[in-house]
């Protein structure tokens, strides 16, 4: 097992390098140059002085060197934990992006837990009562969830619940100017802001999850040992919840790992509608303001997250299902 994991990690290293080279080359096509954002000209400075300052900045940061050299410089820094400097925040990328990652995790963790809590029982019941009204209803519902553009749904919810009924706050993560008296009030405030964006995200991810659980369960119900369990005279409840469900959990557990990068990337649009201060927002703003280092770091973050999730998925699959052979 350990050997397998080590092998998988070793295999990831060249992949990460390939991805980083592609991203680096790609982002150098981006318009604008970093020194124009980093070095602001003071009004009393002459144009010449300003250009000189910019030139100094270019040399200091290695922007005058050829692209491969720049890449080597950058990747050496990244390996040492230095992601570069954000031109917009004027501070190291890690410090600038950190709080936003935390906000995204708060939102996405809640969405992940809720969508699985809702989807698993529905998926199981759909498989057990196949072709019933219940099953058909959720099949159509999940197609509706897949087809719903998240931005339209988000705006619809804002229009209904924030503007017309005024039940929920409009956008953001905390009420501006509101000083929470204690920690509970603080989290309650965040929760209120989270209701609408998480509804959009839950409906979006619910759809796929229900279908996945249902099909995993249908596969299991067809197995011989389920027939054996029924033949033994076990009650249907025991057969379904004890024998079938436990085995159906295997693919479902791996789906959790798979959902994490999907959620993080998928929440980009939702975060931007509700102005949730998360990483999706950071990426969009960084792209609009040509904040090269942040864009690069964010894309590397997404890629690493996806690769890590893939690794966890394979390893957990092998861990929970003894039939999976590692070779």
């Amino acid at each position: 097992m350990l050997k397998y994991i080590v092998k998988r990690i070793l295999y990831l290293i060249p992949v990460i390098f390939v991805i980083s080279i592609i991203l680096f080359a790609l982002l150098n096509l981006m318009p604008g140059s970093p020194e124009q954002f980093m070095v602001q000209c003071a009004p009393n400075q002459s144009q010449e002085q300003c250009n000189q300052a910019r030139e100094d900045f270019r040399i200091r940061n290695g922007y005058d060197k050829p692209l491969p050299t720049q890449y080597v410089l950058w990747i050496t820094n990244v390996i040492q934990g230095d992601l570069g400097e954000s031109s917009r925040f004027n501070m190291p990328v890690a410090d600038a992006v950190g709080p936003f990652i935390k906000n995204s995790i708060i939102l996405n963790a809640w969405v992940l837990v809720m969508s699985f809590l809702i989807a698993i029982p529905i998926g199981i019941l759909s498989a057990v009562k196949r072709y019933s009204f219940f099953d058909n209803f959720w099949q159509v519902f999940s197609l509706l969830g897949i087809s719903m553009p998240s931005f339209f749904f988000g705006i619809l919810l804002i229009y209904l619940f924030s503007m017309t009924l005024q039940w929920t706050p409009l956008s953001g993560m905390i009420t501006t100017g509101y000083q929470a008296p204690n920690i509970f009030a603080h989290w309650w405030d965040i929760f209120k802001h989270m209701i609408l964006p998480s509804t959009v995200l839950i409906i979006g991810s619910l759809a796929g999850t229900i279908r996945y659980v249902r099909s995993a369960m249908l596969d299991i119900i067809r197995q011989d040992y389920i027939r054996t369990a029924r033949a033994k005279g076990l009650s249907e409840r025991v057969v379904i919840y004890s024998h079938a469900f436990r085995n159906a959990l295997i693919p479902v557990v791996t789906l959790v790992a798979f959902s994490i990068p999907a959620l993080f990337s998928g929440s980009t649009i939702t975060e931007s509608i509700f102005q949730w201060p998360g990483i999706g927002q950071v990426l969009i703003r960084a792209l609009n303001e040509q904040d090269f280092s942040v864009v690069l770091a964010m894309n590397m973050f997404y890629a690493m997250l996806a690769l890590l999730a893939n690794l966890i998925m394979d390893v957990s699959y092998a861990l929970v299902d003894p039939r999976v052979k590692l070779s």
Partner: peptide, 15 residues
């Protein structure tokens, strides 16, 4: 394995 939306956004902005 690449998250679709961020990459699509980045590509579109860069190119």
């Amino acid at each position: 394995s690449f998250p679709f939306l961020p990459l699509a956004i980045t590509l579109s902005a860069a190119l």
